[in-house]
């Protein structure tokens, strides 16, 4: 999927899936490339288990909106997240889901990110990186290398390698 000037991306899941960190890394990657980007989030007051949404607007032009008005891309990692955000996906937008955790009622693409994280990466917590890799591969919104740089900057010290691994596995999955 090519993109022209502005892309609005929404990542949705529940607290604890690392959705917001994935959003931050994607935003950072865009910033590294010198693109305009704003990243916001919305979450329940609980730290775990509530809804969790990360929004990004990435653009070659200056950005004036502060929220995703119509998402070009929606990544849903949980049914709860999907239900509360599906209306925001624009007509013909790209829907990416964790195919084992979300049952969408419209056209979609995706993979069992959580299972991949568990089985192939060896750490369920890296589901966010797997999904991010997949999204980047599908959208080409930023370069793979920029995301890898952002991952090195943003994840806790000592976990860089496993997160990079997860991202790359997801990216591979996305290019299939």
């Amino acid at each position: 999927m090519g993109w022209v000037i502005t892309m609005q991306i929404r990542l949705a899941g529940f607290g604890g899936q690392g959705v917001i960190l994935a959003g931050v890394i994607l935003g950072d990657a865009a910033a590294i490339e010198g693109l305009n980007v704003i990243q916001t989030q919305d979450y329940g007051s609980q730290s775990r288990g509530g809804h969790s949404i990360a929004d990004l607007i990435i653009s070659k032009d200056p950005i004036y909106d502060l929220i995703v008005t119509k998402a070009d891309v929606l990544l849903a990692l949980a049914q709860l997240g999907y239900e509360s955000t599906k209306e925001s996906l624009r007509e013909g937008g790209l829907l990416i889901v964790d195919t084992e955790l979300v049952q969408p009622d419209k056209e979609f693409t995706g993979a069992p990110f959580t299972r991949i994280a568990e089985e192939e990466v060896g750490l369920a917590l890296t589901v966010n990186m797997v999904a991010l890799g997949y999204l980047v591969a599908k959208t080409n919104v930023v370069k793979k290398e920029s995301v890898e740089e952002a991952i090195r900057r943003r994840v806790p010290k000592g976990t860089e390698e496993i997160n990079l691994k997860a991202f790359r596995i997801g990216y591979e999955e996305g290019t299939k």
Binding site: G44, S45, Q46, S47, R48, G49, G50
Partner: peptide, 8 residues
Amino acid sequence: LPTIFCPG
């Protein structure tokens, strides 16, 4: 319900 409390 459910409560907002985290697991644990």
